[in-house]
Design a protein around this nucleic acid. Structure first.
Length: 225
DNA sequence: CGACAACCTTCTGA
DNA sequence: ATCAGAAGGTTGT
């Protein structure tokens, strides 16, 4: 995707301990702080607001808009970015030249950004294709297929790293994207209670079928190009 | 370093 | 209809 890093940071800031529908709603609230670009196809388009604009928002305003405890993260991260050498925008894109570990560490200095969100930002906007965000779903996948001996344990930061390493060992330099495919398959929105044959859903018809889970849907490394 | 509660709010599954 | 638990975690103790 190579998303714009500023957008990416604030979008994933909204994602912690949250569900997709609400995340989308919150992101659209953030967008509304940017300048209106126009409308097309029934959608309104906005320039994503600048770091300066985001830093100027009152935390209470975001709370009122339904951000919950993430309101202070948005304002806090905007302000923290302003304080980075050369400004937040430049600082973020400079991370593209760094090692993954250093990128994660740097991003984790922002309030509300932990290892998982940092990995998402690194993968989706900072060219770190081997960044593997380990969340509750990926943890389930890992303990089911890759590291069954870890089943039942709680997901500690150290174990996060082991899971990420296991994904890289299996899928190679694009492990982050493999993770993304597996992650989406794990979402409850992609599943249904009955069904059994693993047939792909009909295009256009909202027929959902549950994938039969026997082995990892993706086997072997991802080919280069 | 690991475990654990707290945190806002909405949606889901039983 | 209702309600505990989960939801693309992070932070402080």
């Amino acid at each position: 995707m190579r998303q714009d890093p500023v957008e990416c940071v604030f979008q994933f800031l909204c994602s912690s301990n949250n569900n997709i529908k609400r995340i989308e709603k919150m992101v659209s609230v953030l967008e509304s702080y940017g300048s209106h670009l126009g409308s097309a196809g029934g959608f309104e388009f906005y320039q994503f607001p600048s770091i300066e604009r985001l830093a100027s928002i009152a935390e209470t305003e975001l709370r009122q808009a339904g951000f919950g405890y993430r309101a202070k993260y948005v304002v806090g991260t905007a302000k923290a970015l302003q304080g980075k050498p050369g400004g937040g925008e430049k600082w973020l894109s400079s991370l593209r030249q760094m090692e993954l570990g250093a990128v994660i560490d740097a991003l984790c200095t922002l309030p509300g950004v932990g290892p998982k969100v940092a990995a998402c930002i690194a993968l989706f906007s900072l060219d770190q294709h081997h960044a593997v965000p380990v969340d509750t779903h990926v943890w389930k996948i890992a303990t089911r297929y890759l590291m069954p001996e870890l089943g039942g344990m709680s997901l500690t930061p150290k174990l996060c790293n082991r899971v990420a390493e296991a994904f890289v060992a299996k899928y190679g330099k694009y492990a982050g994207w493999a993770q993304n495919v597996l992650f989406i398959g794990e979402l409850s929105s992609q599943k249904v209670p009955s069904a059994v044959d693993g047939t792909a859903p009909h295009a256009g018809k909202a027929v959902k079928r549950k994938r039969v889970k026997k082995d990892l849907p993706i086997s072997g490394g991802i080919e280069e190009k």
